[in-house]
């Protein structure tokens, strides 16, 4: 749950929040591509660090740390699986390089989470929906998207209440063999589904009552306009991409252990 917590949007006004979601999305994709290009620790550290100013500029440090903490569990899984498998494969001699490799793989994941959480923490889902609309995605889909985001916390809470209500009637979820355990979830799933259906009917009624589908030329309270900040971010992203591609093919990237040969002194 805590990882989702970090993805929850909170409206703050900051230069990063004001950026156009489309440009921010371009940045996230570019970040993703660059992170996947490199397997070395050094450039990934650079990628990690250059994003930190964005976080502070967006004033979302606290939530960002929260989502990073949420990612820590997966990060440690990635680290240990990489470490164990490489170790089994390459043996003890290569320990430092295995360590560096595993750390690089972990950091790659962290960089991805970092850029995605910057995106989600600074982009209101309303703006995101609008960006989808502007990218010629049909309005119904955009609406479905924002509504889904809106109702995730509501449904999660409802599921918890239903579980409590059934536990109060003596339901023990962890009791019995596998088959029994699966069946234990029926008293939770049925009310959850029934309520979801009822809720969607009520939503549909409310939408209809507010002139849903009155005209094909729907307008929007918000407007997306590219501003100076957007051009700057777009430019920086392109520069980063070009540099990264160039460096990939033309500059040999040293390993950290080559720069600080702590193991070599032995």
């Amino acid at each position: 749950m805590s990882m989702f917590e970090g993805l929850k949007f909170r409206k703050v006004s900051s230069p990063i929040h004001d950026l156009d979601p489309r440009v921010k999305f371009f940045y996230v994709i570019a970040m993703f591509a660059v992170a996947v290009m490199y397997m070395e620790l050094l450039p990934l550290i650079v990628l990690f660090l250059i994003q930190v100013p964005l976080v502070t500029m967006a004033k979302v440090t606290k939530q960002w740390i929260k989502s990073m903490r949420g990612a820590a569990f997966f990060a440690s899984i990635i680290f240990f699986t990489n470490f164990i498998f490489s170790y089994l494969y390459q043996g003890q001699q290569a320990l430092p390089s295995i360590l560096e490799y595993s750390m690089a793989m972990t950091l790659r994941f962290i960089v991805l989470v970092e850029s995605f959480s910057i995106f989600f923490l600074t982009t209101s889902p309303d703006h995101l929906g609008l960006a989808l609309e502007k990218s010629h995605v049909p309005y119904e889909f955009c609406f479905a998207f924002t509504t889904a985001v809106r109702f995730v916390p509501v449904l999660a809470e409802e599921a918890q209440t239903i579980m409590d209500a059934q536990k109060a009637r003596g339901l023990e979820l962890e009791k019995g063999n596998i088959l029994k355990r699966v069946r234990n979830y029926i008293p939770i799933l049925i009310p959850l589904i029934v309520n979801a259906i009822r809720r969607s009917l009520e939503l549909a009624e409310a939408m209809e009552s507010r002139a849903w589908g009155a005209t094909k030329n729907r307008t929007n309270l918000y407007e997306l306009k590219l501003r100076r900040g957007d051009y700057i971010l777009a430019l920086l992203t392109v520069v980063m991409l070009v540099l990264a591609v160039y460096a990939r093919w033309h500059i040999p990237i040293p390993r950290i252990m080559e720069i600080f040969p702590w193991k070599a002194s032995r």
Partner: peptide, 22 residues
């Protein structure tokens, strides 16, 4: 003690019946 054990003594009726009927 478990919720199930306590529930024998303490009956709890939730606000919305639709959260339990199945």
């Amino acid at each position: 003690v478990s919720v199930a054990t306590l529930a024998r003594k303490v009956g709890f009726v939730f606000q919305n019946p639709d959260h339990q009927l199945f």
